[in-house]
Design a protein around this nucleic acid. Sequence first.
DNA 1: ATCTATTTTTAGAATCATTCTAATTTTTCA
DNA 2: TGAAAAATTAGAATGATTCTAAAAATAGAT
Lengths: 128, 128
Amino acid sequence: MTKNARYILEIINNSTEHLTAEQIYLRLREKNAKAVLATVYNNLSTLYEQGLIQKVCVEGYPDRYDKTVRHDHLVCKKCGKLSDITLEDLAEKLQKQIGVPMISYDLKINHICTECLAKEKEHGGDKS
Amino acid sequence: MTKNARYILEIINNSTEHLTAEQIYLRLREKNAKAVLATVYNNLSTLYEQGLIQKVCVEGYPDRYDKTVRHDHLVCKKCGKLSDITLEDLAEKLQKQIGVPMISYDLKINHICTECLAKEKEHGGDKS
DNA sequence: ATCTATTTTTAGAATCATTCTAATTTTTCA
DNA sequence: TGAAAAATTAGAATGATTCTAAAAATAGAT
């Protein structure tokens, strides 16, 4: 594994956020591990193919990268923010229900995050 | 509702496939209901906002549009083909498991479709 | 160490579905 | 009939991501 790849993996694994390629690129520069954005994309693809990271795609937002520990995601409909959630035995339940062999699944639960809820209350008032 | 919007809605509701904006555009032209691609996109957005159609986004493929009857999707990892599947009471089960209020959910189950499985057997052999 | 071969990185162009802009046409209904 | 609103249009713009081809770094073999 390349130094760049290792750094990128570290950044992802040490982050509690869900980082975009751009954000990872910026964090790399902070570490003086200068690399161009294309390199970040290259490494992210490789890491993804190797199953070392997860990619979270939400319509309207750039892809975000995440550790591989099994978990699902809440997506805020207002700001796009991702939060982790773990649903026990979902994979098994799904596999049981669909007859065909499942490779994997991708579940996103839409909600409004607490920040956005607060904002709504604050100035939103009753916009009905 | 506009004539274009009505046609587009019809096309989607009468199709068993999962059509892209481009495909819908082509079908419109067949009906002599000529409209430009931007118009198709405009109408699709409106229909989507009104909750009259569903949008299915899969990474690497253009968005596809679908009827709103509640169902989930199988996605072929090889060719991207979508198939419908209905998982009973999933919404309720999910809502019960995640404490926060759920707006909706989006589940995609990855698998290999029968066509691609057949192709693999045919010339794939044991590429291991 | 030294010389290939392979891999990685780079800069910058290209892609392409989708959105935007501003102008034009169509529809609405007073 | 005419003014305001809505829908359509052509074409440019967007923007995240991928591609290209060249340069740099790394690894393996002698």
